[in-house]
Design a binder for these strands. Sequence first.
RNA 1: GGGCGGUUAGCUCAGCGGUUAGAGCGCAUGCUUCACACGCAUGAGGUCGCAGGUUCAAAUCCUGCACCGCCCACCA
Length: 895
Amino acid sequence: MAVDALPKTYDPREVEPRWYAEWLRRGYFHADVDPSRVPYVIMLPLPNITGVLHIGSVSTFSPQDVLMRWRRMQGHNALWQPGTDHAGIATQNVVEREMAKEGLTLQDLGREKFLERVWQWRDQSGGTIDQQLKRMGYSCDWERYVFTLDPAYYDAVLEAFIRLYNEGLIYRGKRMVNWCPRDQSAISDLEVEYEEIDSSLWYVRYPGADGSSGIVIATQRPETILADVAVAVHPDDDRYRALVGTEVILPLVNRRVPVIADGRVDPEFGTGALKITPGHDYLDNEIGQDHNLPVLVVLDEKGDMTPDTGKFAGLNRFDARDKVAGAIAALGLVEKVIPYRTSVGTCDRCHAIIEPYISDQWFCDMTGMAARAAEAIRAGRVRFHHERWARIVLNFLDHIRPWTLSRQLWWGHRIPVWQCDACGERVAAKIAPAVCPQCGGTVLTQDPDVLDTWFSSAIWPFATLGWPQETPDLRYFYPGNVLATANEILFLWVARMIMMGLHFMDDVPFTDVYVTPTVLNLEGQRMSRSLGTGLDPLEMVEDRGYGADALRFALISRCSQNQQDFRFAEKMIADVRNFNTKIWNAMRLVLMHLDGFDPETEPTTTALGPADRWIRSRYARLVANVTGALEAFELDRAARMLYDFIWGEYCDWYLELAKVDLQPEAGSGKPPTKERPVNGQRRAAVRHTLWYVLSNTMKLLHPIMPFITEEVWHRLPHRGDSIMIASWPQPRPEWVDAEPESQMDSLIAVIRGIRSLRTDLGIAPATMIPAHIRAGTDTLETLRRAHQHIARLAKVEAVFEAQGMPRPPSSVGAVLPGAEVYLLVRGVVDAERERRRLGRTVDDLEADIERLGRRLDSREFLERAPAEVVERERQRLEDMKARRARLADLIASLH
RNA sequence: GGGCGGUUAGCUCAGCGGUUAGAGCGCAUGCUUCACACGCAUGAGGUCGCAGGUUCAAAUCCUGCACCGCCCACCA
């Protein structure tokens, strides 16, 4: 397509899906075992099948794709393992809700029919997130896609369970667990989210059994008074010392319970007297056990009052709270009720308030595995980025508690334990044992529960590679390299993968954990679909037309490791869209000058001008800096450096200067033609530089913005098939050159100085005016050679002169650091106005000279500061004084 | 109660011991300049949360405080 025919704006909606399909078709995402190459492995944090892409996923997945694409270009055998999680509770809830619309319950369908229905649901609606991941450009190896209920994966989960069971680490027990009355299942400690709510604190009097006034307790949960078995006070609490050992009477039930002493009671809280309800509270349960108290239960698995609670039977816990409190108040035993703000545990899936509930569950003892994982982290075998997260994970591991593994659900990996109907013996096995090994009984029943979804996720890094089989994949790709995630699943998932990896594979599953900050909206709220505070990524990418590249870049440029969250808004994506348009138009300009260009021809070094040498030097630094930033997991820095280089250096300056170099005659304003060529070698050098820097900058940018870089790269002359598999730019230390950099600094300063003067004087931007430019010998020579560039960029026709002469007649000037510029104005110079303008510069200068002078007068500074710092400051002071003197001359010449 | 992070221009963020504290957006002014108005040019805008300390030198290091946010913990 002719360059002129290319549109002025870039359309990501056309480009992005086209390239993704092409990459897929060419199999670029697939990784096979290849001992000749070094593997690089990232496990995609597996989305739920119920999931849809949200901004949080984009902000954690995008950095992973950056790392994958970068390492792939560096020649690593890069594997990004994708898949989805069956998401036990979440999925079962979705399908149950759907069934409820048809008036169906779990019991109506039965286990088998229900599971069929979930699979049906998965086939229809599961998987939408996969399409969304593809739309974002993620280079996952889709050929290796794993679902946690795939037969092979299912088998691995059972294998892990059975091994831990046989090692004695998994056990069954009746104890208090976090119970979700809505889901009617146990959940683990980590699945409880604490929320602040407004509640009340009831002060209730328990009369003494001997007719005395008894004791007043404070409680948030009057309904559990029916299950109280004691009142506890602190042993050193003088107020109650006499009551310990006596009995008090529970209101309503009129049961006599003892007053006991226990050090765990806080005398400062409430009345200092704690009612003990071992059936419905963790601390009470502990205290009850230690004092051999009975356990009474008044709430059932649905959170309703049990049948033996008389007139309260069947009430839900919240209604019961009011009714019980009311009934006690009617007896005159409620001393007072005060408003009370408290935190309650809620279910992270359905947000129902959790009940401490006693039931039979399966647990896993994590102490040994946690100690081993902690040791690995302390030894630096797993590094966290930012390292502060290591301490947080270590704190979790150092205080690890048993993991409640069983869930009273149907959707998930069913616990592979069989119990003999005859003798009660339990056997762990993948398939039903024919006979009981204990008594020979032939009727064995499988445990009805399924495993915590996170149990299956914990073995993801090796179960996806064929474990427990010793597959070539497993040998080659394990351990992996990086795990990138939001901080919210560090314990739920990351820590557990480290523990399981060490346990089953005898090695950590990855060496680096990259923790991405949380995305907030501008009000500082967590972005959430349910709260309506979110930003829908697909809407941004497709409907608003910003494209996946823009969203990726916008998020990556803000994922600094310094902070644990950052605020984000649509405008920030639009800004990157503008950057894309800038890149696109830079490409259009370059292409206009690349007719018949052969990228194989190396330019003659001597033909390179200062601008070419400058941009090559800047580019060489960029390669080193971007590569270094990626190595240090400073992706945000890499993004910002690329933005600044492309827009601020390559486009703003190099392209403008190159236009001049590619013109046949200064100021002719026409592109070069065959009839009017520029110097052949110069032209070749400039064209090569234009092409080389743009082409390779696209490579550096490709990991962050894969689509536009591929599109641009393809339109430029090149040899390769795709930028995706092009090699990462080679470092060019020999191009780093301070000389052209300093020359360009002078040139830019002069051009800016002239432009600023022009604006001050209100000279129309297009008007060409005469000017005098003065500088020291070297700088003057540089500027003189750039006279055509200055003419075009500053719109002046300049004469170049040595410094020191008086102000040219009828001119207005400025003294810049290192150069002076004078514009010749028609008519009379407004001396007063000029004095004021120059005076402002002098004032600023005076202040600096004053401050610097004081510093250089200080003996301590001269004696203690490093010599080069002192020397540099001296030089600065001299330069400023010289500049002040020139300004004074200039002002003096005005009259 | 313990821990972590933040507080720099109107907004979002860089800078984390040494020139005059930067960027993008927003704002003002001027430009339909032959890559780009999703643009170009010029400019205004900051006592770097507060109080101490260390240092020749502090936005940057230390201590304390104040807000904002997150995590952990069995205070009824």
